[in-house]
């Protein structure tokens, strides 16, 4: 049991989280942006589950991560629908083309 402490898991969570943010900020493909969202939420989820094992959070952490997974799915569905709608209107998936509203 000496193996891996909580810090290892937290580091993984942090990496996933930051990769997600970067992914959202760099991808020009709308679907790629959504993948970034999934990574961000997943990073938080790793945290929750890690705390549930190593901290006093207990089962609550796991349940929170369950709800996050469900909410992420819902959000992904809506986001995908919006991206597809954007695609239908602009005939592209490049988010850089979303530049008509500004100022």
């Amino acid at each position: 049991m000496e193996g891996v402490g909580i810090n290892g898991y937290l580091a993984v969570g942090a990496v996933l989280f930051v990769c997600g943010v970067i992914c959202m900020a760099t991808k020009r493909n709308g679907i790629g942006v959504l993948m970034g969202v999934e990574l961000v939420l997943n990073g938080a989820n790793v945290n929750f589950v890690a705390f549930s094992k190593f901290g006093p959070l207990g089962l609550d952490g796991q349940i929170a991560s369950l709800f996050v997974i469900v909410l992420a799915a819902a959000e992904a569905a809506v986001a995908l629908a919006i991206v597809l709608n954007f695609y239908n209107n602009h005939l592209t998936i490049d988010v850089d083309r979303a530049n008509e509203l500004q100022g």
């Binding site: 988010v95 850089d96 530049n99």
Partner: peptide, 16 residues
């Protein structure tokens, strides 16, 4: 040019 037109991604970058 990319930097200037990439509004949405700039927004996200501004969050970070």
């Amino acid at each position: 040019q990319v930097v200037q037109t990439g509004k949405l991604r700039q927004y996200i970058m501004f969050i970070a």
